[in-house]
């Protein structure tokens, strides 16, 4: 049956029952004036922001983690002063980002630093990427430090340089070790995109809130939003699981 016709038939009822009432509310939150299109429009922005922030976060995280690890692994008495200064900046960055709420960072970025930008989605993605970078950096650093130092010693003792040792020996193993925490961080990032609605970033929550203000009914728009996030996270977890299984190939006995 056509959803609109069904809605009209329920609406004509003198005293609609619980399920009829529920359907009418759902109709208002989903079908009425093609509102479902807006959810998907928001979903698209959510995915877009997540992807941009993820790429930015990984790049930042890798750079910061590399600098900090290289600094910490220098031979005693042969410290590079330039690396020392850059390391200090990295440390400040990580401290500030991890020490302040995402929401506050977003408002500072949206209303203070990029106060003349109208590309709210990009400002949001940038803020989230910068935020994520700090966490990714710490995850990577933890992964690099948790790896048995014997691994890089073995690489170096064979005459491989620092970069080759990192590239072929340390990073592939560290990556496998940190994948679960990295996955968690990305899921957090995906969900944190909902915050950009405070700087008028038009993602799912923004549209859900707008629909609530038109229907005066909060349940369906928010539950629909929750389900959409859940589906995104499930897809992401599935991909992560696949990757983990592939990387575990060398563990089989």
């Amino acid at each position: 049956m056509d959803p609109t016709a069904l809605y009209e038939s329920f609406k004509a009822l003198e005293d609609p029952g619980f399920w009829q009432e529920a359907y009418m509310k759902f109709y208002n939150a989903w079908f009425y004036e093609d509102r479902w299109v807006t959810y998907f429009q928001g979903l698209l922005t959510t995915v877009e922001v997540t992807v941009i922030a993820l790429i930015l976060g990984v790049i930042l995280g890798v750079v910061v983690a590399t600098i900090r690890t290289a600094h910490d692994q220098q031979r005693l008495g042969r410290r590079n002063p330039v690396l020392g200064v850059v390391n200090l900046f990295c440390k400040i960055y990580v401290t500030v980002i991890r020490g302040t709420p995402m929401m506050v960072q977003l408002m500072i970025m949206g209303f203070v630093i990029f106060k003349s930008s109208r590309n709210f989605t990009m400002v949001g993605a940038l803020s989230l990427g910068i935020n994520s970078g700090a966490y990714v950096a710490e995850i990577i650093r933890g992964g690099l430090m948790s790896l048995d130092p014997g691994q890089s010693e073995a690489g170096r003792s064979l005459g491989l340089g620092y970069l080759d040792t990192m590239r072929f020996i340390v990073i592939p193993q560290a990556f496998k070790a940190i994948l679960p925490s990295l996955g968690n961080e990305f899921i957090t990032l995906l969900k944190d995109t909902s915050l950009i609605s405070v700087i008028a970033g038009k993602e799912i929550v923004y549209f859900a809130k707008s629909i609530v203000t038109k229907t005066y009914e909060a349940m369906y728009p928010y539950v629909i939003t929750a389900i959409m996030y859940l589906i995104l996270v499930l897809i992401f977890s599935w991909l992560q699981g696949k990757l983990e299984r592939r990387l575990r190939q060398s563990d089989r006995r």
Partner: peptide, 19 residues
């Protein structure tokens, strides 16, 4: 690195690359 290429080293815990 050039020098180490001419000196092999074997470790107590083997340190083979598991990946």
């Amino acid at each position: 690195d050039k020098i180490r290429q001419q000196m092999g080293m074997v470790f107590q815990h083997f340190n083979l690359f598991p990946n």
